[in-house]
Design a protein around this nucleic acid. Structure first.
Lengths: 150, 150
DNA sequence: TGTCATTAGTTGTATATACAATTAATGTTT
DNA sequence: AAACATTAATTGTATATACAACTAATGACA
């Protein structure tokens, strides 16, 4: 549906760029709401899922907290506290690094990998959210978004 | 910059749609961080700005709370508390509706309109965030985002 | 008119975010 | 080695979000 209709805006946006800014925020919020539902049965938040995927990407090599932060979708969320929550659920392990005791090494556990596998399986069909788009449209969109942040 | 580089992802996304989901969330977070900075000198949050714009759109006609919610970018944020914050700063006025005393009519004040005018002036040049894009690219993007949520 | 359902908004609570201040370990420099 | 700077992470605090429970007013109707 057109953005203007979804947010019941009677006036026009002053230009395409302004509409684009709102459109990206709006679409992201829509997607985030879906993600919350998608991960809720597994007891984690979208950000926690993101951290687990980051750790799976580097496993079995550990990552330090600042590595995780820099890879996160939302750079400003607090990695210390997110990781602590995952640790309490047994999905990651924390260990102070011996060579540099300021630094904390974090690794995903077997339990964490299993959780991700479960989620992936349950969401195999999830890309259906975007079923209105063709693959090549998704490519164009990805390309333009990448350029937009340039 | 390519999303894969920004989030230092070594592995490939499993498909374009999965990358697109992350790309939208990531771009939105990037935009949101800019907005926080953009509005900070004026002492309001992006969501508060959004509410003020919605009210300006309908002024001088008041809106009830549920109207505001349904027009907001982030539907889940709590309109009652957002409006209360704006009221404390003098940017909006609340009045229980006489015809239907469940309902609360909210109007933007002169002070609120002045604030928006100030912000608009200060941010005249802001669309520069998107200077890597042409107008027609922005149009395509808007169109595809609209379709994606369909 | 009394009962029940619906509508509009508010409040409580757990969690998350933004951001600054702080702690602790390591590097650098004289 | 002492003083200072930098790096890595943690903590504190104010604000925001997600969501459910709740209150109050109105509507429907037997």
């Amino acid at each position: 549906m057109r953005l203007e209709d979804e947010i019941k805006q009677n006036k026009k946006f002053s230009n395409e760029f302004e509409k684009l800014a709102v459109n990206i925020l709006y679409t992201s919020s829509w997607l985030e709401a879906q993600n919350i539902q998608r991960f809720k049965p597994f007891g984690i938040s979208p950000q926690q899922y993101n951290v687990l995927r980051i750790l799976r990407g580097s496993a079995p090599k550990p990552l330090m907290l600042s590595d995780i932060s820099s890879r996160m979708i939302d750079k400003n969320s607090n990695a210390t506290r997110l990781v602590e929550k995952l640790r309490l659920k047994g999905y990651v392990k924390r260990e102070v690094c011996e060579n540099n005791r300021r630094q904390v090494d974090i690794v995903i556990t077997k339990k964490g990998l299993d959780l991700l596998a479960d989620i992936d399986k349950a969401n195999d069909s999830w890309n259906g959210s975007f079923k209105g788009l063709t693959k090549s449209e998704a490519e164009v969109l990805n390309d333009v978004l990448d350029r937009l942040r340039g």
